[in-house]
Design a protein around this nucleic acid. Structure first.
Lengths: 242, 242
DNA sequence: ATTATCCGGTTGTCGGACAATGCTATTATG
DNA sequence: CATAATAGCATTGTCCGACAACCGGATAAT
């Protein structure tokens, strides 16, 4: 019976630098909005060269834990929902997800989100949503980009109104994933604007009436309509998202 | 009325290096599994020093687009769902989300996921799920860690069975977020194991019967039960997740 | 008071050097 | 001949020192 050794853990210095600073940030020894020491100081304190410090800092930077003022010191910050959402959707796109997966996720999540919205949205959030729905009227049906923008903003407003950063993050990544294909769909679907407008008004009405089930149902229809759009536009659902 | 100028866009070289390589990866000019040129070559090709190249590579590395074989060349890869999920949940934790937000997200997403599972899960996935449910029987109620593991694995199996990487990514981040608090809940809830077991069997039954609504309903109950656990365990829902 | 100039601190970039490591081909050994 | 030891070689990781670019603030000039 031979003793088994743990593989000695070896990591490049720049990685250790990253982990050391990250640990101090996560434990609030480096509180939000505080400035990191200068590279030279870090180099001295950690006992490695400035080169290694700099490489470690790049890792920090990419994980969204610090932010550089223009040209200046690094400031500790919390990652914003939008950043996390963007990174996640970027990762998923690169991971090769298909339109079908995105659409399925939409249809699984947004009806529930609408139901939540029906019981949760503040007066203010509702009036903003109202505004978005009203705005669509003034957009000429030919201006596809603006219609897409409006359609996405409608989703966005519902997501934001939930006042829940976890859901917001996830719904935002969906919004990012869907936006690209939405343009194709809307360009190729006759009466797209009209149908979107009807759906929006029905969803909004249900939310105002605080009717969970109705809100979910109309949202569900809205998203199913979208799926039909894929067929009409001739988009293969098994295609990778951009 | 004064004219407003766009700020001149200036980026450090290491950032340009990152963007250049990223662009080549995203466009498949650098296909998956291919090796990046050596740092020296990159330095020559891009016309910057190796130091700058290395800093750019750290950014790439952190975004999960490349992977280092042990000690050696960087290989292009697709980010794994688990990585994206982990990064997202890490970002959300750091963003300061509360237990309430996590729980609300759970209760918004998992019932829909269960409904999908009811119509979607393969025979194989169901039998694996069956196994997980059966395993719980053999775990002594006192071994909280193992009960937690099992509870999370149950969620995990449902998520994986959906065969949808977008949903999988999102549900996985939820699983990571919930796991930590679950232990506290289970430790402080009498008959936790029993209640979990009942819920699992009911959900599984509904999925086997391909009954969407029933699956969603039982999952909803399961998650509500969890929320009661928070109260019993005396966990403040407004607390930040770890 | 506004503009121009200077100055010190910090980041960004460069170039070179060398150690540590892994791979490959060659040589030595049974 | 097959296998093991060895020697090179290529590549990454780390260090060092230098300097340009840039920022903010202080000071001087108009």
């Amino acid at each position: 019976m031979t003793h088994t050794f743990q593989p000695v853990k070896r990591a490049p210095l720049y990685m250790k630098v990253y982990q050391a600073i990250e640990a101090d940030i996560l434990s609030d020894r480096l509180p939000e909005h505080s400035a990191l020491p200068t590279e030279a100081d870090l180099s001295a304190q950690l006992g490695v060269t400035r080169s290694s410090v700099r490489e470690g800092i790049r890792l920090l930077e990419q994980s969204g834990l610090v932010e550089r003022g223009p040209g200046k010191r690094l400031i500790v910050k919390r990652p914003q929902t939008s950043e996390v959402a963007e990174a996640a959707s970027k990762g998923m796109v690169r991971g090769g997800v298909t339109f079908r997966e995105v659409w399925q996720a939409l249809s699984a999540m947004y009806p529930s989100a609408s139901a939540l919205a029906a019981e949760h949205l503040s007066e203010e959030a509702i009036s903003e949503l109202d505004q978005v729905v009203a705005n669509l009227k003034d957009i000429p049906a030919k201006e596809h980009e603006r219609v897409v923008e409006n359609a996405v903003e409608f989703f966005q407003m519902i997501a934001r109104g939930l006042d829940n950063r976890v859901l917001l993050t996830m719904l935002q990544s969906l919004n990012i994933l869907i936006e690209a294909s939405l343009k194709q769909v809307i360009e190729n679907t006759p009466k797209a604007k009209k149908r979107i407008s009807v759906a929006q008004r029905n969803i909004l009405g249900a939310i105002k009436a605080k009717d969970r089930d109705l809100a979910a149902e109309w949202m569900s229809k809205h998203i199913n309509d979208l799926k039909r759009g894929y067929d009409v536009a001739g988009i293969d659902l098994n295609q990778h998202v951009i």
